[in-house]
C-alpha cells in the first residue's frame, strides 16, 4: 500500500524505436515505500523496457522515469544510487566465489563497509547454504545465482528495487523463498517494482498489479480491488481484448 510520496514513478513514459515501433506507450505508474508493484504481461508487452528506462539503459522518447525524486535520464549516476536491480537470469563472475561477487558488487554500489561476516549472513538470509558461500559461481544453479542477486540487492540497501522476472525458471520451493524475502523487504520499507509472468505469485504478494499489453498499461488494480477477483481471468480478458482491438 502506497503511504508516502512515490519512490519509483513513471510519468507519460514512452519509448519509440526506429520505424515507429512503440515499445512503451505513455506509461504512468508509481510505487511508494513499502509497496510491491507487479507488472504482468506477455512477451514484448513493455515490462523489460520499463525496467531499462528506470535504469537508464535506454533513454525515453518522451516522459520520464523517476527514482527517489531523480529523473533517470537527466542524472543517471545519481538515480542509480537509489535503486537495486535483479534480472531474470542473474549472471555474476564465474571465476569468483559467492562472497567475492557480493564484495565486488556492493563496493561498486558504493558500500565499502561490509565485512565477510556480513556477506555470509546475507547469503544465509536469502537461503544460500553455507558450504556454497566460498564456492566459485561457475558451478551454481540458476536458483543459487538468483539468491546471490537478491543478496546483492539487499546489501546495496536502496529505497527501490527493480526485479525483472526474478522467479522465472525457479522451482516452487525457491519461488516461495523468494516471495518470503520480497515480503521482508517490503516490510523494511522498500519500493519494489517487479515484472513477472507468474500471475499467482503476483496476486499473492503484490500491493498493486498492472497488466501491460503492446507497450500500454491496460489495467491497474490494488490488492484491495483484486480481492475476490480472478486475476488469471482478468489477465486473459485484457490480453484478449487488446488482441481483438488490434486485429
Amino acid at each position: 500500500m502506497q503511504t508516502t510520496s512515490p519512490v519509483l514513478e513513471a510519468i507519460n513514459l514512452t519509448k519509440t524505436y526506429d520505424y515507429h515501433v512503440t515499445a512503451l506507450d505513455n506509461l504512468n505508474l508509481s510505487v511508494g515505500r513499502g509497496e510491491i508493484y507487479s507488472l504482468l504481461g506477455g512477451n514484448g508487452a513493455g515490462k523489460t523496457t520499463t525496467m531499462n528506462l528506470f535504469l537508464n539503459f535506454i533513454e525515453p522518447s518522451s516522459g520520464k522515469a523517476i527514482v527517489n525524486g531523480v529523473v533517470t535520464h537527466e542524472e543517471p549516476i545519481k538515480a542509480k544510487q537509489y535503486v537495486a536491480f535483479v534480472s531474470e537470469n542473474v549472471q555474476l563472475y564465474g571465476q569468483f566465489t559467492a562472497v567475492q561477487n557480493l564484495d565486488f558488487f556492493t563496493r561498486i554500489g558504493g558500500n565499502t563497509h561490509y565485512t565477510q561476516r556480513d556477506y555470509e549472513q546475507v547469503l544465509l538470509r536469502v537461503g544460500l547454504q553455507k558450504e556454497a558461500h566460498h564456492r566459485k559461481l561457475s558451478g551454481f544453479s540458476k536458483g543459487m545465482r538468483q539468491k546471490c542477486g537478491i543478496a546483492i540487492a539487499i546489501l546495496k540497501n536502496t529505497p527501490a528495487i527493480l526485479l525483472d522476472e526474478p522467479t522465472s525458471g525457479l522451482d516452487p520451493k525457491a519461488g516461495n523463498e523468494f516471495s518470503r524475502l520480497l515480503a521482508e523487504l517490503r516490510d523494511e520499507g522498500k519500493a519494489i517494482l517487479m515484472s513477472t509472468h507468474d500471475i499467482f505469485r503476483a496476486k499473492e504478494i503484490s500491493d498493486t498489479v498492472g497488466i501491460m499489453n503492446q507497450g500500454k498499461l491496460v489495467m491497474q488494480k490494488s490488492a484491495e480491488e483484486l480481492k475476490g477477483e480472478n486475476l488469471e481471468s482478468l489477465y486473459l480478458h485484457f490480453m484478449a481484448g487488446y488482441m481483438e482491438e488490434t486485429a
Binding site: 539503459f57 549516476i77 535503486v83 536491480f85 542473474v90 549472471q91 561498486i108 546483492i152
Partner: peptide, 14 residues
C-alpha cells in the same frame, strides 16, 4: 553476453 554488464551498470558506474 554473459549478463554481468547490466548488473554492473545498474549501479552508479560512470
Amino acid at each position: 553476453e554473459q549478463g554481468t554488464l547490466s548488473l554492473l551498470f545498474s549501479n552508479s558506474v560512470p
